[in-house]
Design a protein around this nucleic acid. Sequence first.
DNA 1: TAGCACATGTAACTCGTTACATGATTTG
DNA 2: CAAATCATGTAACGAGTTACATGTGCTA
Lengths: 187, 187
Amino acid sequence: MSTLAYALLGLLAREPATGYQLAQRLRAPIGYFWTASHSQVYPELARLEALGLVRHRVIAGPGPRDTKSYRITATGRRELAAWAVRPVEPAPERDEFLLKVYSLWTADPAGALTMIESRRETHRTALARYEEIEESIRAHTDVAALDPCDPAFGNYATLRAGLSYERHALGWCDWLLEALGAPTARG
Amino acid sequence: MSTLAYALLGLLAREPATGYQLAQRLRAPIGYFWTASHSQVYPELARLEALGLVRHRVIAGPGPRDTKSYRITATGRRELAAWAVRPVEPAPERDEFLLKVYSLWTADPAGALTMIESRRETHRTALARYEEIEESIRAHTDVAALDPCDPAFGNYATLRAGLSYERHALGWCDWLLEALGAPTARG
DNA sequence: TAGCACATGTAACTCGTTACATGATTTG
DNA sequence: CAAATCATGTAACGAGTTACATGTGCTA
């Protein structure tokens, strides 16, 4: 079973959905840590159904195609829970940005500065977005008392990861800019 | 040109190497942010040579096979420098661990704790390794005065990224353990 | 003498992306 | 009336992994 299979099960464990909706959610919210295009989703759903982990119900929609509403089965739910606690085998990190920094000494310093600054901006934007989401969650939830058996726990925990990650990335960009001798970094 | 191509150019810009040595360096040191197996390296080197970005010299080694020493060309060096300052298009993040956390609410709480603790241990080990490397660098280099045009700058900057990343990951694991109600987390 | 390091390559397979293909309904 | 959204699928391609293939020299 591919990781995508578990991404889909994880979404369907929350609520039934169509392949189209699942593909959307693989852009956001869980697109922040797992993505897939619809061309991957539809065949994967068929495979999961063959294994008895999901089932679908056809809804004759207004369009030319039937809408298929998928839901997770009890077996699928057990499979998901078992996978979730199986330790991840360390996967190789792949970060093109770090690879560029590794070779940045070969480039012209002005271009290097611009490159890092643009990256810093990306992280700043991502952090702002996550902070907005956090505020909206805090507005209607007591996050200090979140039940670990509530799906909202998964949402909040991964959001915290995103917040922490962006802050780390921003801090490192700031350090880099300073090291490169940028006059704009940290005043 | 694939990203692997630039990983190889980035290594060859520092010093000439054989395919075998490049494959090794793609496990460490740059394996921390880009990896490849030898089966990928050899064909990629041939492609780079066809483009005139690297050249090789055959050394009749003691073994049954010739040893090919590759070095970067002036064109290759220019290509690398141009790539290094080109802003990265935002690549989709893929983090299987976060995906598990997203579905952790479906699992049994004891198993969840063990899973996170094992992950925390992985980050602790990685951080310790990076800290050792940092110490060994500090022992013979004044890192505050590193020249951005020195290859050592790339080494140190990426190491700093690793240190910062592992600290972020550790901190988040600690928060998660606390949120899951672990008695061992933070005293 | 068994296993590892050195050293280079090919083949089969999986995972993921982009493009191809279709077509109704809603919104600007 | 043009474009986006909803909705489902297939095909071609690229990137990466694992296994296959070969063979020497050194070390435990």
